[in-house]
């Protein structure tokens, strides 16, 4: 039986005291691929930013391994952040460094490993995401799909237990997107990483996710949750049914 790794409690998501989501409560189990989905502008990425401690929420808490990341400061915050990896929507690779240097950076900053070891680990991580051929390229020379894969490799650099991915398939062609889905499943299986993914790419959701929550903009909360394949087949909630079946 897998244990709960993230607990979100009474989270009001938003900026500057303006809540766009109210009283969100959900748990994420260790090793699962969990997807947060919803229509454009509903606040998915904001919820993700609260979960990774990047932006303080209006109110509420997010517990990672039982520790509240929204209120963590100093060493406690550093320890929590070292246990998670984040791949941002546009990759957010450092433009002045090669792909290899981007992956080596967190290892150099947070471990005492010798350089030879750091380079070997970084190369393995890049091979995992099939970027072994692009070690010495600059981010500027990469395609959108390559940037996202390199960003996942950098997020995995410190072997985090949880990987947060913001819109990993957005803007990719179907083949590259499918390749990325395969990679996520492979990593989740082999490395037992918990994935928290923000997306609204239906194909991806149905392929990779174990469980989803769907956020509603008008409702300012969770309007559906569970196995996405069951949600797709269940007409009891018309909006969710339409969303999953692309039927406006």
């Amino acid at each position: 039986m897998s244990k709960t790794i993230i607990n979100v409690r009474h989270l009001c998501a938003g900026y500057n005291h303006n809540a766009i989501m109210e009283d969100l409560n959900f748990d994420i189990q260790s090793g699962e691929v969990f997807v947060i989905l919803g229509g454009s502008g509903c606040g998915k990425s904001t919820v993700l930013k609260h979960m990774i401690g990047l932006v303080p929420p209006v109110s509420g808490q997010v517990f990672i391994h039982g520790e509240d990341i929204t209120n963590a400061r100093g060493k406690a915050r550093k320890r929590l952040l070292a246990g998670i990896g984040v791949a941002f929507q546009n990759g957010a690779l450092f433009g002045s460094m090669t792909v290899l240097e981007n992956i080596m950076l967190p290892l150099m900053e947070f471990t005492d490993l010798p350089r030879e070891a750091i380079e070997a680990i970084a190369r393995v991580k890049l091979d995992l995401v099939d970027m072994g051929h692009a070690l010495y390229l600059l981010p500027d020379e990469l395609s959108g799909g390559m940037k996202k894969r390199a960003a996942i490799a950098r997020a995995m650099a410190l072997d985090p237990a949880i990987l947060f991915l913001d819109e990993p398939s957005a803007g990719l062609d179907p083949l590259t997107s499918a390749e990325l889905d395969r990679l996520i499943l492979e990593l989740a299986g082999a490395l037992n990483i918990t994935f928290v993914i923000v997306t609204h790419e239906l194909e991806s959701i149905l392929t990779i996710s174990d469980r989803v929550i769907m956020l509603g903009k008008k409702e300012k909360g969770i309007i559906a949750q569970g196995d996405p394949r069951k949600l797709k087949a269940d007409p009891s909630n018309p909006y969710v049914y339409k969303f999953f079946n692309r039927n406006p």
Partner: peptide, 18 residues
């Protein structure tokens, strides 16, 4: 075992810097 398999499959050190 899966971890070792993944790292063994890596083509590590095949590419040298320009």
């Amino acid at each position: 075992a899966p971890l070792l398999d993944l790292s063994q499959k890596s083509k590590n050190e095949a590419l040298s810097p320009p």
